[in-house]
């Protein structure tokens, strides 16, 4: 898997935009979008890890952090 669970685009920027422009905007494309029906026999977390992540399956985890700064 060489893709992330984020998409990005470069919005149009006018030379007259009043705020300093954000040149690349990022948005979430979470795992469920790419899995219309969950395949069977996916690898699983240990019970402790599963509790921490909120799911038994690593394939469903895309995570989110404050540092990403999705606008």
């Amino acid at each position: 898997m060489d893709y992330t669970f984020r998409g990005s685009y470069e919005p149009y920027i006018s030379p007259w935009d009043p705020c300093p422009p954000i040149k690349v905007k990022t948005f979430s494309l979470p795992p469920q979008l790419f899995m219309n029906f969950q395949p069977t026999s996916l690898p699983q977390f240990s019970p402790a890890e599963a509790l921490q992540h909120g799911t038994l399956w690593p394939a469903l985890v895309d995570g989110y952090s404050k540092r990403e700064g999705i606008s």
Binding site: Y3, T4, R6, G7, T26
Partner: peptide, 13 residues
């Protein structure tokens, strides 16, 4: 939605 899914970023290697 499908158009946006195609905008999916690749992992940086």
């Amino acid at each position: 939605v499908e158009v946006l899914k195609e905008e999916r970023d690749r992992k940086k290697i």
